[in-house]
């Protein structure tokens, strides 16, 4: 059997910004939730494209936004398979490598209601104990979690 033919698709081209590609579907919305939708330019998201690399993939483009190290770490936790390209003047100027961080604080909350983080309103802190898929251990209650939508939704503003 030959390779499955990929349908051509068009996503708004950007002159400057960040393209996050090869996000395994359906994690695109989770990545967007974690990074936040607020942006100077257009944010376009494509879901469920065919991909030889990851089967079905999602794609996000942030116009005018160059994501920073912290944001790259967040993507690494959710979709370590993703690729990140930084665009300037319509050209790829950087292929950002994704490394899963060893520790993470702040943006994900522990889902254990009896964890001291939730009872005392503390800054959540996780250690990465496995990388594929990423599993996080809460520094406090020591429960191990796969990154889930609920953990982001519960984040404190």
């Amino acid at each position: 059997m030959g390779k499955k033919k990929e349908r051509p698709y068009k996503v708004f081209k950007i002159e400057k910004g960040t393209v996050i590609d090869h996000i395994p579907a359906p994690k695109g919305l989770l990545v967007l939730e974690v990074l936040g939708k607020k942006n100077d330019g257009i944010v376009s998201i494509g879901l469920n494209f065919d991909s030889q690399k990851v089967g079905k993939k999602d794609l996000i483009k942030f116009e005018n936004k160059i994501i920073d190290k912290e944001e790259t770490d967040k993507i690494a936790l959710i979709a370590p398979e993703a690729t990140i390209n930084i665009i300037e003047n319509g050209e790829v100027v950087e292929k950002r490598s994704i490394d899963v961080p060893q520790e993470i604080t702040g943006f994900l909350n522990c889902l254990n209601p009896n964890c001291v983080v939730n009872r005392e309103n503390l800054q959540p802190h996780f250690e990465v104990v496995e990388e594929g898929p990423v599993k996080l251990r809460c520094k406090y209650c020591e429960r191990v979690w796969e990154v889930k939508y609920d953990m982001v939704e519960n984040k404190r503003k």
Partner: peptide, 27 residues
């Protein structure tokens, strides 16, 4: 403490040694 992670939290805020004598269902 009945709250899990309470002893770890305690060790964050003091330089004294803490012995966890049980934190909820954890340790």
């Amino acid at each position: 403490h009945h709250v899990e992670g309470a002893a770890r939290r305690a060790s964050d805020v003091t330089d004294l040694p803490i012995i966890n004598a049980g934190d909820g269902a954890n340790q």
